[in-house]
Design a protein around this nucleic acid. Sequence first.
RNA 1: GGUUCCGUAGCUCAGUUGGAUAGAGCAACAGCCUUCUAAGCUGUGGGUCGAGCGUUCGAGUCGCUCCGGAAUCACCA
Length: 624
Amino acid sequence: MFYALFGLVFLLFNILKCYLCNLKIVKEKMEIILKEKIKEAVQSIYNSEVKGELIQIQETRKDFKGDFTLVVFPLLRFSKNTPEKTGETIGQHLMENFDAVCGFNVIKGFLNLEISDSWWVGYFKNLAAEKSHLENCAVSSPETILVEYSSPNTNKPLHLGHIRNNLLGFSLYRILSGVGHNVIKTNIVNDRGVHICKSMLAWQKFGNGETPESSGMKGDHLVGKYYVLFDSHYKIQVQKLIDEGMSEADAKTSAPLMKETREMLLKWEAGDKDVVDLWKMMNTWVYKGFDETYKKLGVDFDKIYYESDTYKVGKDIVLEALKNNHLYRNTDSSIWADLTPEGMDQKLLLRSDGTAVYMTQDLGTAVGRYNDYHFDKNIYVVGNEQNYHFQVLKAILKRMGYNWADGLIHFSYGMVELPEGKMKSREGTIVDADDLIKEMQMTAMEVSLELGKLSDFTDIEKDEIFRKIGMAALKYYILKVDPKKNMTFNPAESIDFNGNTGPFIQYTYTRIMSVFRKAEQMGINTGNLTYTGEKAGKKEIDLIKLLRKFSETVSSAATGYSPALIANYCYDLSREYNQFYHDFTILGENEVEKRNFRLALSKVTSEIIYKGMWLLGIEMPERM
RNA sequence: GGUUCCGUAGCUCAGUUGGAUAGAGCAACAGCCUUCUAAGCUGUGGGUCGAGCGUUCGAGUCGCUCCGGAAUCACCA
């Protein structure tokens, strides 16, 4: 009796142990397990110790039979035999000693291993059990990371370049916090400086008291109008002086409007009430306009810094550093940093009239932020045209003894260019953010209405769907390209809705949603889908292979700061699913096991697409 | 001129420690809806991966030299 009981407990224990063990193997990456097995194989066949880096496992290319491929070339030194023979021998050994391997073939120096269906289905079951699909990308030591993005100037509305900036910044936030970091979204508003005074001066001179209300214009666009107006008047003055025989450089500094601008900046820094009031009023207009655009883009911030605050901190820091002999004062009393020891140039930090420059405020902002958050990393989402600026910023901070400056990272992204080159305001080729957003939603509406699949929705519901589709088209179009690279936008050809696009991915998602609505109607319990893992089709396994790549894609997107990886992954997955959807019937399948398996595949696909697009800041409609 | 980045199909882009016959989409052409959404799927054509040399069993990927383009080197931001 006692022995029987003991035996039973022992048996149960072993079953449990086996189950846990199995689960562990399935959860681990097959590449890692294979690597171990191959190491053992080489040890036992050739009696040699192999270093891990010599065992190269990759996924088998689609044109060949198999799931994983071992590159045998590096192992020839142990086998002292031909690549073919070596591959055969190792393949045979794996077949006999590792039950997940159910077949192999050798082509040239490549050993293609076939993994059993049941292993794949078992693997998939674990994927299906995941809640967020981000479990496996969680970082071991979470950091406090500030992400600065957007950084608008208050003298003009946002344009296409800003859109790329905002989308990258926000997506970076989603990705980094998705893998477990503590991320703070910040924005630095360039609300001071000569350029701001330009639009203020132009409004004062030519505005006749015009306001957003009186003109019906969005505040940021109204202020932008005066910035342009300044420029055209200023140019006329400069040209006049040049015609009178002055050099271009002198004409530019001595044109009356420029003189007045500089006076205004001095007054502003001195706190002159009239200038400050005007500044405040125009800022209010601009911020209201920006808020609307941010809302449409779906981005927001945890903390907004203003240069009008931080430049003062910057000035203090500069003066302090001067005292400590980190900087020097020129004969005209301007203050400079000599960065020749660091391999860079001289850098101006305070003008001869004592006013601050761009670098001054950036120093102040960095120090202020460190004091506020004690970040591990401070990521600046700023265009690659400022690469040198950030190199200098970091060098100066280090010079001043701020060792945390090592955590400053310039996330340098490429410019958005038009087919004829850079966007230029003087040529009127700036692509305005608000216009573009509106245009995308109009196109989404046209396409949608033509297809006519939403006739049972109210107008409000339809508008919401058009908004999601239009924004997805725009966002995906921008995020799918490698952030580091310059990209071309052709306004003449409107952004596509077919092929490698946001709407295509949304469409795939809505198809899956549609299947599940139908399944509910059929009375299928989609919450608890049972199936065993003995058989699966090639297309089904292809899908599983792609699904398993999600977490590693997110991980590399996080470490490499590249939302584009996730965007392209979502596209690949959608394409794969659409093929599956085309080739197989899901609800029409009579065998319940198979049907449930396909439903589960569809479900996990939809979850991962949803999550991937969420990491990009792209919303998914349930129908379209 | 110095520094940095980029050249992949007609166009827009993938191609992550070097691996097999370099991939998608758009555009063009030819097919597939009585069926879970055709914003989809299948097929055809299109490439001396800017050029050359080198390292390697193997190079779009690494190194060097050219060619072409961009950014930056402001008392602009």
